[in-house]
């Protein structure tokens, strides 16, 4: 079972994510989005979308950068003050992302709401998986410290062994079941990437950095202070 979860399943998830992802990009380019529902509901969306996206993007980047540059990460975490600051930043961001995903789920729950009408089953699965993933990550960060340090000696060598096509799961199989669940769910989310709204992850608008600027002109009168309005009406 471990061999399936930690060797076969990651490869399956990655192959499908890249293969089907590229195929969907070619065959159905207009579905490469997350289908905005901002027009249908905007109030809760702010406290869902902003904390979720800022929180999860920074946490995901920390996971990826530490996996790509474990030496630099080990140096950075090699001092107790830096370790504490980085760990607490991570935990704060995890709480932030958790609030975001909970609000995003609550927003789609009422059965008669307009947002519920445009919610697919896959949206439900994605939201549920992300909630469990953030909750497990946060509790690992709090209760199984120091995750940032042991991640470099457990998950990172495992990732590299998978990348080098010489899979070795020995550093991860003896970890607590809760930690292993977090690893497997991570690859489950990668697996769902091409089949769900998660495809919008690779649609980051980097071309905005070099495209010509646009001037936005509001076609309405500038707001006038109330006192002045009263004077003018006299």
């Amino acid at each position: 079972m471990d061999a399936f979860l930690f060797i076969a399943f990651p490869y399956l998830a990655l192959v499908l994510a890249i293969g089907v992802g590229l195929y969907r990009r070619r065959a159905r380019p207009y579905t490469y989005s997350s289908l905005s529902s901002q027009l249908l509901e905007n109030r809760k969306l702010f406290w869902g979308s902003v904390p979720w996206h800022y929180g999860i993007t920074l946490i995901l980047l920390a996971h990826l950068l530490a996996a790509f540059f474990p030496g630099a990460a080990a140096w950075l975490l090699g001092n107790r003050i830096r370790l504490l600051v980085l760990e607490l930043t991570g935990i704060s961001l995890a709480f932030y992302a958790l609030l975001g995903i909970v609000v995003l789920i609550i927003r789609r729950l009422p059965t008669a709401s307009r947002v519920r009408r445009v919610t697919s089953y896959m949206d439900g699965i994605v939201l549920g998986l992300l909630l469990v993933q953030v909750a497990t990550g946060l509790s690992i960060a709090i209760f199984d410290r120091w995750g940032s340090l042991w991640y470099l000696r457990t998950a990172v060598p495992w990732f590299w062994s998978l990348a080098k096509l010489h899979p070795d799961m020995s550093t991860v199989i003896a970890l607590p079941a809760f930690v292993k669940l977090h690893f497997v769910l991570g690859f489950a989310i990668i697996l769902l990437f091409p089949f769900s709204r998660l495809v919008h992850l690779v649609m980051f608008p980097v071309q905005y950095l070099w495209r010509p600027y646009q001037v936005v002109i509001w076609n309405r009168r500038a707001r006038v202070a109330p006192a002045k309005t009263q004077e003018a009406s006299r």
Partner: peptide
């Protein structure tokens, strides 16, 4: 130190909310 770590993380989260 678990309660302290959890509380400090939660404090950081509250600061993030204020910033937002």
């Amino acid at each position: 130190l678990t309660p302290i770590v959890a509380l400090a993380g939660f404090g950081g989260f509250c600061i993030l909310l204020v910033i937002t």
